Lab assay of single mutants.
Amino acid sequence: GPREVTMKKGDILTLLNSTNKDWWKVEVNDRQGFVPAAYVKKLDSGTGKELVLALYDYQ
């Protein structure tokens, strides 16, 4: 199956793709996968990378 990404509340993840309104593709610890968009919030990183903050645990 697809590689699952797990996250804990407060984690910072790299946002790869947010074109789908329900599932965003993120990368964390060299793993890529989809997380519910409602579970993360975009951060203003000030760099080229888009980052998101995990609002809830997800696994």
Rank of each mutant, 00 (worst) to 15 (best):
K41Q: 13
K21N: 10
K21F: 06
D22W: 15
Q59D: 13
E50C: 13
D22L: 14
S18Y: 07
K49F: 09
F34D: 03
E4V: 15
T19W: 09
K9H: 04
R3Y: 15
G48F: 08
Y58D: 00
A54C: 09
D44K: 12
W24R: 01
R3S: 12
G48P: 08
R3F: 15
Y56T: 09
D11V: 04
L55T: 04
S45F: 11
G48M: 09
K41Y: 08
A54F: 03
L51D: 03
K25G: 05
T14V: 15
G10F: 04
G1P: 12
G10V: 01
K21V: 09
Y58P: 01
T14A: 08
V26N: 00
W24G: 00
L51P: 01
M7T: 01
N17G: 06
D30N: 13
V35W: 02
Y58L: 04
E50V: 14
A54D: 00
G48K: 08
K8Q: 07
V5Q: 03
S18A: 12
D57F: 05
Q59K: 12
Y39K: 05
L55C: 05
R31S: 11
V35P: 00
D44E: 13
I12A: 02
L53S: 04
K25W: 15
K8T: 07
Q59A: 12
G1H: 13
P36H: 04
Q32G: 05
K9C: 06
K41H: 08
K49I: 13
E27R: 09
L13A: 06
S18P: 04
T14W: 10
K42Q: 07
L16Q: 03
S18N: 07
T6R: 12
K8D: 02
W24P: 00
N17L: 08
W24T: 02
M7D: 01
L15G: 00
L53R: 07
E27H: 05
K25F: 15
I12S: 02
K41S: 09
L43M: 08
V35A: 02
K21D: 09
A38T: 10
R3D: 11
W23H: 02
L43A: 03
K49A: 10
V52S: 01
Y39Q: 03
T19R: 11
K42I: 12
M7I: 11
M7G: 01
D30K: 09
S18L: 04
D22F: 15
N20V: 04
T14L: 13
L43S: 03
L43Q: 04
V35M: 01
V35C: 04
D57T: 06
L13E: 00
Q32K: 08
T6S: 14
Q59W: 11
G48A: 10
G10K: 01
S45Y: 11
R31Y: 10
L53H: 03
S45W: 11
T6K: 10
N20C: 11
G46L: 12
M7F: 15
K21P: 14
G1M: 12
D22H: 15
F34N: 03
F34M: 07
Y39P: 00
V28K: 14
I12K: 05
K21M: 08
P2D: 11
A54E: 00
D22N: 14
W24M: 03
